[in-house]
């Protein structure tokens, strides 16, 4: 049971962070299907910091720098989406898909090039990086926590306050509901959409790092983040684009996702289901839920539609 709780917390924080990222982007009116790619890039940046500076910095500084690196990398990568979707008014789904493909390919090239250089250029072609993750994990009582749990709770509250209790949140939301009306009262729609996309890049990059680092100490970048970014999109829709509902939805999905990890060690092993079946579960669960919730979905009205000042 503790094991289930451990993995549920681990995955719930990741799904929540990334889904909150998606929420900010979509609330400002930009569909961010590139979350998967942003996660991969964020995770890569954070892990590179760990590999390069691990043991050369005090633990606290290392944690801080690597987390910031992952978030900043996410922001920079999300600017590519903003540029195509907002400035150039391109199709947001296609641009996002391209960025997902680019992220995995670029991450593999970078990691392989690094490994090749580290091995003295002998043609080593491993797409894996190993690192130490002990600085991120601490024990309290019978459970193992990681630092992202605390960060996640803080960011959830910040996200709620920002979105609903400040004028900036209102401005951001108005750009996703009715950008023409927002423009008419002097809100710069392009600027706020960029803000939404960049916040989603920040949370997405952080989420990618939070997904990879606490659970394993070696990561193969060929798999990206194994569909977690897309799962986060389903969490966001199930959470109806609202922060606390997203948190609840994230916990729900995380339980399904955790079953695969604990299947061997617990009573579930008596069922003799293979890992493939458990791996399918979160996706099947999300499809069932989406089928029932999408009819009366409260998606931001203007999401996915590039804002054109001249349009009537």
């Amino acid at each position: 049971m503790f094991l289930l709780l451990k993995y549920t917390l681990l995955y719930a924080v990741v799904l929540m962070l990334v889904a909150l990222g998606g929420m900010f982007s979509e609330r400002s009116g930009v569909i961010n299907i590139a979350l998967e790619g942003i996660m991969a890039i964020g995770g890569l940046a954070g892990i590179i910091v760990l590999v390069l500076f691990g043991g050369k910095m005090p633990a606290a500084a290392l944690v801080l720098v690597s987390i910031l690196a992952s978030a900043i990398a996410g922001v920079l990568y999300s600017l590519l989406l903003g540029f195509s979707a907002i400035t150039l008014k391109a199709d947001q789904t296609i641009g996002g898909t391209a960025l997902n493909m680019l992220a995995t390919a670029a991450a593999v090239v970078i990691v392989k090039a690094y490994n090749n250089a580290a091995a003295g250029g002998n043609g080593s072609a491993s797409s894996k990086l190993s690192y130490s993750n002990t600085e991120f994990i601490f024990n309290a009582g019978p459970l193992t926590y990681n630092i992202f749990l605390i960060i996640g709770v803080i960011l959830l509250i910040v996200a709620y306050v920002f979105l609903y209790k400040t004028k900036y949140g209102l401005r951001l939301r108005s750009c996703g509901e009715h950008p023409q009306a927002a423009d008419s009262v002097g809100i710069n729609v392009y600027k706020w959409r960029y803000a939404g996309v960049m916040i989603s890049g920040f949370l997405g990059g952080l989420g990618g790092f939070a997904y990879i680092v606490p659970s394993v100490s070696t990561w193969n970048f060929e798999v990206g983040v194994t569909g977690f970014g897309f799962l986060a999109l389903a969490v966001m829709i199930f959470g109806q684009w609202k922060p606390f509902r997203i948190a609840g939805a994230a916990v729900f999905f995380a339980i399904f996702k955790s079953l695969a990890n604990i299947a061997d060690a617990t009573f579930l092993s008596n069922l003799h289901l293979s890992k493939n079946i458990y791996d399918m579960m979160p996706f099947i669960a999300s499809m069932i839920i989406l089928a029932f919730t999408s009819k009366n979905s409260q998606a931001p009205k203007a999401e996915g539609i590039p804002y054109d000042k001249g349009a009537r």
Binding site: L80, K89, G95, A98
Partner: peptide, 11 residues
Amino acid sequence: IIAVIIYLCAF
């Protein structure tokens, strides 16, 4: 290279 080409194809 292919991914960059699709990104460009988006616009």
